[in-house]
Simulated assay, not measured.
Amino acid sequence: MTAVSHEIFLHPGEFFVGDQRHRVRTVLGSCVSITLWHRKLRVGAMSHFVLPAPPAQHGNTLDARYGSHALALMLGELARLGVRGDQCEAKVFGGAAMFAVAPGTSQVGTRNGDSARNMLDGLGIPITSEHLYGAGHRQIVFDIASGDVWARQLPATPSTTEKSLA
């Protein structure tokens, strides 16, 4: 097994594709990370998206802040390495409730998590693990060499969960 020689930290709206030399980290609230991993080649990808899809007036440029675009960008980079998406295993993390919302409206985190599941299902990419929803932040670490993803959820603080819409 190759030792990790590169640590990558993803900020919101970023993604990364690399080989077994990489370990990728991020911190999520309502955002979602999808990891894709090819077992034989030890190649993987990870996103950190903010919203499921761009607004209608967004234009044609792919933007990794949006789940649909982040997944397309990751799949494009994996294809350049000779990997098809349906050859990968997916794991999905995040989608926590970070703020109170008006009754009858859904949390952005829930929409992000549901979107990730639906996109992967639509592409025939199996989800082998997920850690979604709840409240508070998650710390995520993806070791591309092993395909392992560690998630640690930190409890929400009163300042993040007691805010309401005025």
Rank of each mutant, 00 (worst) to 15 (best):
V141Q: 07
R138Y: 07
H131K: 09
P126A: 14
F93I: 05
P103H: 06
D121E: 13
S146P: 04
M98Y: 12
F93Y: 15
V92M: 08
K91D: 12
A90M: 00
S146T: 15
A145Q: 10
A102C: 04
F142Y: 11
A116K: 08
D148S: 09
A97Y: 02
G147M: 07
D148G: 04
N112Y: 13
E130D: 14
A116E: 10
G104C: 11
V108Y: 00
Q153S: 12
L120A: 03
G136Q: 14
A116I: 11
G136Y: 15
Q87M: 10
G113C: 08
E130N: 03
A100M: 02
K91E: 15
Q107N: 09
V141C: 11
G104H: 10
E89C: 10
K91A: 15
G124V: 01
K91T: 10
D86M: 09
T128A: 14
A90P: 00
N118M: 10
G95K: 07
A102Y: 02
P103L: 03
T105Q: 09
F142N: 05
R138W: 03
D86A: 11
G124I: 01
I144A: 05
A151G: 07
L123S: 00
Y133H: 13
R152Q: 13
A116P: 03
Q139A: 14
A151M: 11
Q87T: 13
D143C: 11
G94V: 05
F99N: 09
G85H: 11
N112E: 15
A96S: 08
G134H: 09
G113E: 07
G113N: 06
G113K: 02
G136L: 14
D143R: 04
G109W: 12
M119V: 08
G134P: 03
M119W: 10
D143F: 06
W150P: 00
R138P: 01
W150M: 04
